[in-house]
Design a protein around this nucleic acid. Structure first.
Lengths: 91, 91
DNA sequence: TTTACTTATGCGCAATTGCGTATATAGTGA
DNA sequence: TCACTATATACGCAATTGCGCATAAGTAAA
């Protein structure tokens, strides 16, 4: 499952948790988090810490992968890509 | 590339950035972050925010995937797994 | 060595984290 | 309805974020 933003990740995590029939409390206890923290993660994950993410991944027995995007060149020399507006004010 | 913890993720990101010959400043500008923030992410990523992670992924043209771990059962009923000590105090 | 670029680090700042704890609000089943 | 579980939300708290900004180190080339 590809995740492109915090919200998508949160939704996936919630779905996985439910699919396994686990409550937020149980998941939280498993990796020493509070139920309230899990709840906030599932609703507004943007500012949550990486730490917390990996704890949840562990509790839900999920694994994460990173790789170059499909059409991404390697060894950009003088790439400019002066985009703007996509990240200037998001989430 | 599988990432199991924040540190591994940070290292991968740094390597990717270098492989592409980009400086922290350039990457930061791309997604409206500060060079100092990128620097901190690459050295101590544990507490960094998801927000920041996805900005970096975008700048480096990387994609993230989540999926059930290799040997993970689905629909645990009465699973106990009373582990402890792995997450009680880490990083 | 000097120049240029890159990375690390520091300050004050407002905002947010996750904790500990508690409660309010669903939701479910008898 | 009642009881129980699950989730959302709140409070004060210390810690940390990322910002703006600046500067100190580190690296490399001339």
């Amino acid at each position: 499952m590809k995740v492109t933003d915090p919200k998508a990740l949160a939704v996936y995590l919630r779905d996985e948790r439910k699919r396994r029939g686990l409550s937020q409390s149980v998941v939280a206890d498993e990796v020493d988090l509070r139920q309230g923290t899990v709840s906030r993660f599932e609703s507004t994950p943007e500012k949550m810490q990486l730490d917390t993410l990996f704890r949840l991944l562990s509790a839900l027995e999920l694994e994460l992968s990173v790789k170059p995007r499909d059409g991404s060149a390697r060894n950009q020399r003088g790439s400019h890509t002066s985009d703007d507006g996509k990240w200037t004010e998001e989430w």
